[in-house]
Design a protein around this nucleic acid. Structure first.
Length: 445
RNA sequence: GUGGCUGUAGCUCAAUUGGUUAGAGUACCAGAUUGUGGAUCUGGGUGUUGCCGGUUCAAGUCCGGUCAGCCACCCCA
């Protein structure tokens, strides 16, 4: 016997069986539909890019996580680790043909060679949407609305979109004479919920070179709470006299007003000065979205505004705003909330292969039902009916069609509702119209 | 990248602490009136105890390595 190769997957890489893939695709479809409804258009870019494009950001961490190698022509190449860098390159290369604003969405796989943990894999999918080429707060509002509609569309229950604006913090830092220290400050601030104000203050003193008083002043910002209007008022007085900070507060007010005008319920939106997002390229509005039922899993949709997306690749100024749906997290949440039905068939109807001499009749039936836009599977073997029904049940089919000699003689077909256990005899008329109507009624009812 | 925990059937777990042929539930397959599933009954073990090596008369059990998973740190563009 030949030596066998052990079937296995790489660390951090996953197989997706049907019952995982079906809800996954459904979620992605919903995201695409919502993105499109706002005029975002799909793009795609190569998985593999010149290493210099990907490594352009130059941070050590990036470099460590990047999958890189020499291709057959000796070129140094790497797998994309997010969709933002490819977008920047794409925009720099094509913006003159496409014009602004450029509204695109991109659903694609990315790779990071980082250490794995629950929910952190080396290959995963991102679902980004961005608006490039405008500073208008209208784009910020629209981004919030897309997040809102998306979460609404997946029926996952109440959620909260947390809003902040980097300009507020940067304005405050300017006022305190700490301009330029926003990166270490944000990094420390981001840990607030985890390690508490005391340790955050210590880290700020140690990492950002702040005095204890300055750290306390910054933490004062993070401690602001109350209704959105209360927060706005507190922020106004905190950054009073600083142009940047005041603009940030004004933009938050505009964003809030716009979202409200578009009909979003008040409780869906929360000004939250404590959210920072770890990413240091955000310069204005930042978003995080949590599920009220599962705050512990963190943000399921995050993003923000950046000043200059493509500065590494072009002299053209390309401001933008966008966000990314946390697909894996969202699916984990749906699983935990038991919103995912265990289904491993993509078609709702199974035709039992009952009578071997009737194969052509079954095929004609299937064709007619498919033509009506309904997915049908014909069981491939003329096994015992009980087994076929068991198969239908296990896979999660909704309806089984049963037709044998008796039915064909009477010119009918049995339509069986598998969940309810009920069934009815439907005449097989020309074009199977009655049958299709019965199926449709059963599927919607 | 650092440190810790774990790895037995598809899944959840057992195996008297090193003792001889690795078990149970569930799932799966076949059958129980060759036309009706989710129930019941019968039969079937489907496993290189993750992998490689070491210690020992004897290893699922102890040791080392490796691979994988989980947790914390780091980081998360």
């Amino acid at each position: 016997m030949a030596e066998r190769i052990t079937p296995r997957t790489l660390k951090g890489f996953r197989d997706y069986p049907p019952e995982v893939m079906i809800p996954r695709e459904r979620l992605i479809d919903t995201a695409r539909r919502v993105y499109r409804s706002y005029g975002f258009s799909p793009i795609d870019t190569p998985a593999l890019e010149y290493l210099e494009i990907l490594a352009g950001k130059g941070s050590e961490e990036t470099d460590k996580q990047l999958y890189k190698f020499q291709d057959h022509g000796g070129r140094w190449v790497g797998l994309r680790f997010d969709l933002t860098v490819p977008l920047a390159r794409f925009a720099a290369q094509h913006i003159n043909e496409l014009g602004v604003p450029l509204k695109r969405y991109h659903v694609a796989t990315v790779w990071r060679g980082e250490n794995t943990q629950r929910g952190r894999y080396r290959e995963f999918m991102q679902c980004d949407f961005d608006t490039i080429g405008t500073r208008s707060v209208a784009a910020d509002i629209e981004t919030a609305l897309v997040i809102h509609d998306l979460l609404q569309a997946i029926h996952i229950g109440p959620f909260t979109i947390h809003l902040n604006n980097r300009m507020v913090l940067n304005g405050l830092l300017e006022k305190l004479g700490l301009a330029g220290q926003s990166v270490p400050v944000l990094r420390a601030l981001d840990k607030l919920a985890k390690i508490g104000p005391q340790q955050v203050a210590e880290e700020m003193v140690a990492q950002a070179g702040m005095t204890a008083q300055q750290a306390a002043d910054v933490l004062k910002l993070a401690a602001i709470s109350g209704s959105n209007q209360d927060v706005l008022r507190s922020l106004e007085s905190l950054v009073a006299g600083n142009a940047l900070g005041s603009e940030g507060v004004a933009r938050l007010a505009d964003l809030l007003g716009g979202v409200r005008a578009a009909g979003v319920a008040e409780e869906r939106i929360k000004l939250d000065v404590s959210i920072a997002r770890g990413l240091d390229y955000y310069t204005g509005t930042v978003f995080e979205t949590t599920l009220d039922a599962l705050p512990g899993i963190g943000s399921v949709c995050s993003g923000g505004r950046y000043d200059n997306l493509a500065e590494l690749y072009t002299s053209q100024q390309l401001p933008g705003i966008g966000a990314s749906l946390g697909l894996d997290r969202l699916l984990a949440a749906m699983e935990e909330l038991q919103l995912i039905e265990k289904v491993s068939t993509a078609a709702p109807v199974l035709i039992a292969y009952f009578d071997e001499s009737r194969l052509h009749d079954y095929l004609r039936l299937a064709t007619a039902i498919r033509a009506a836009g309904i997915g049908v599977e014909l069981f491939p073997d003329a096994k015992k009916l009980g087994q076929q029904l068991k198969y239908a049940d296990r896979r999660g089919f909704r309806i089984a069609l049963i037709a044998g000699g008796d039915e064909f003689a009477a010119g009918t077909c049995q339509v069986k509702n598998l969940a309810a256990g009920t069934q009815q005899n439907v005449p097989l008329d020309e074009g199977a119209g009655s049958l299709i109507a019965a199926i449709q009624e059963m599927l919607t009812g």
